Computed example of a mutant assay.
Amino acid sequence: MKRLFGFGRKRKGPPGGASPPCNPGAYELREKELGKLHRAAASGDVAQVRQALRKHGLDERDKAKRTPLHLACANGHSEVVSYLVENKCKLNLCDSDGRTPLMKVRDIGNLIVGKTFPLFLCCLQAVQGQQEECVAVLLAHGADPDLADAAGNTALHLAALAPNTSLAGQLLEHHALIDKYLYQMINCLSFLGCFRTPLMTAASGGKLNLIKLLLRYGADVSHKDINGWTAEDYAVIHGYSR
């Protein structure tokens, strides 16, 4: 990474003794808390979704303010996503975490349907092409890639945590803001902005291919967060100085 960023070797520990920013939080739901429409969307059953829509609204919310599109995207069910989008569902509605369906395609949180398991395991069960198709459908129909969730994460920040660069590439091709800031509420009495960029997020995880992609699209390597850390600092702090 030293060659990529073009800087000299940095300090090994977090500047000022502060802790590195943490990942966005997760939320959980159980199957019994989901209605028929949301269960069908989460399971990828287009026929059941079509039937449930006779009695339920296209953008009906569950207890976490998620629409059927949120659940279909979270599980990588591109057929359900396409069906909902073609029937003019709303693309940019936010759930209780402030996340749009586009953000849920590659969320790092937990989704519980029937039994407890991490969302990334659910994503691994789906074909990668389906996930990419979900993103493609949403972006092609006008989903906003620059909306931020309650923690300040955009879809590009979350894509920077994914094991491949294809999703980030799609977002960048649709002109996602590459240096949109990440901030985080520390508590109800004080605010400490992290102002992390997607490049910093990628550097924190040592994602070399994604770093190259972000740099190719003009990511600012000199940008500093509120602690004065650059992307290279994040790489060194997390053990990716090479």
Results as ranks from 00 to 15, higher is better:
residue 119 L to Y: 05
residue 44 G to E: 02
residue 112 I to H: 13
residue 106 R to V: 14
residue 144 D to Q: 08
residue 101 P to Y: 04
residue 118 P to L: 12
residue 149 D to L: 05
residue 54 R to H: 12
residue 156 L to V: 03
residue 121 L to K: 05
residue 136 A to P: 00
residue 122 C to R: 11
residue 107 D to E: 11
residue 105 V to D: 00
residue 108 I to Q: 13
residue 33 E to Q: 15
residue 85 V to D: 04
residue 150 A to C: 12
residue 60 E to P: 02
residue 42 A to R: 03
residue 35 G to W: 08
residue 35 G to P: 13
residue 89 C to T: 14
residue 101 P to H: 06
residue 88 K to M: 06
residue 130 Q to M: 12
residue 78 S to A: 13
residue 70 H to I: 00
residue 160 A to E: 03
residue 49 V to E: 10
residue 119 L to A: 15
residue 167 L to A: 03
residue 135 V to L: 10
residue 130 Q to C: 14
residue 140 A to Y: 07
residue 151 A to S: 13
residue 135 V to Q: 08
residue 163 P to F: 01
residue 105 V to P: 08
residue 144 D to A: 08
residue 90 K to Q: 12
residue 46 V to H: 11
residue 103 M to G: 04
residue 126 A to R: 03
residue 87 N to A: 08
residue 127 V to C: 11
residue 79 E to K: 09
residue 141 H to C: 02
residue 110 N to I: 14
residue 113 V to K: 06
residue 76 G to V: 00
residue 74 A to G: 04
residue 53 L to H: 09
residue 94 C to A: 05
residue 104 K to E: 14
residue 129 G to C: 07
residue 160 A to C: 13
residue 165 T to K: 11
residue 142 G to D: 12
residue 43 S to F: 15
residue 73 C to V: 01
residue 125 Q to G: 14
residue 89 C to S: 12
residue 54 R to G: 02
residue 115 K to L: 05
residue 34 L to H: 01
residue 139 L to Q: 12
residue 118 P to D: 15
residue 49 V to H: 12
residue 143 A to Q: 07
residue 174 H to D: 15
residue 41 A to S: 10
residue 108 I to F: 09
residue 85 V to G: 09
residue 154 T to P: 00
residue 59 D to T: 01
residue 76 G to S: 10
residue 40 A to F: 03
residue 95 D to N: 15
residue 59 D to S: 09
residue 172 L to N: 06
residue 149 D to A: 06
residue 98 G to A: 11
residue 129 G to Q: 15
residue 141 H to T: 04
residue 125 Q to F: 11
residue 74 A to P: 04
residue 90 K to F: 00
residue 124 L to A: 14
residue 83 Y to I: 03
residue 174 H to W: 09
residue 67 T to Y: 07
residue 37 L to R: 01
residue 69 L to Q: 02
residue 161 L to W: 11
residue 151 A to R: 05
residue 102 L to G: 05
residue 102 L to Q: 08
residue 100 T to L: 03
residue 167 L to I: 15
residue 81 V to I: 00
residue 91 L to G: 14
residue 133 E to W: 02
residue 54 R to L: 13
residue 92 N to M: 02
residue 101 P to N: 07
residue 164 N to R: 13
residue 38 H to T: 04
residue 166 S to W: 03
residue 115 K to W: 06
residue 155 A to G: 05
residue 35 G to I: 00
residue 169 G to A: 12
residue 171 L to V: 07
residue 108 I to S: 10
residue 168 A to C: 04
residue 63 K to I: 12
residue 166 S to V: 07
residue 45 D to R: 04
residue 175 H to G: 01
residue 50 R to M: 15
residue 149 D to C: 05
residue 123 C to Q: 13
residue 96 S to L: 02
residue 85 V to T: 10
residue 105 V to F: 02
residue 130 Q to G: 02
residue 39 R to H: 04
residue 79 E to G: 01
residue 174 H to G: 05
residue 103 M to D: 11
residue 165 T to Q: 14
residue 154 T to Q: 14
residue 61 R to A: 06
residue 47 A to E: 15
residue 114 G to M: 06
residue 62 D to F: 03
residue 68 P to F: 04
residue 134 C to L: 07
residue 109 G to Y: 06
residue 104 K to G: 03
residue 135 V to G: 05
residue 160 A to H: 07
residue 80 V to S: 02
residue 156 L to G: 12
residue 85 V to N: 11
residue 93 L to Q: 14
residue 106 R to G: 15
residue 88 K to G: 02
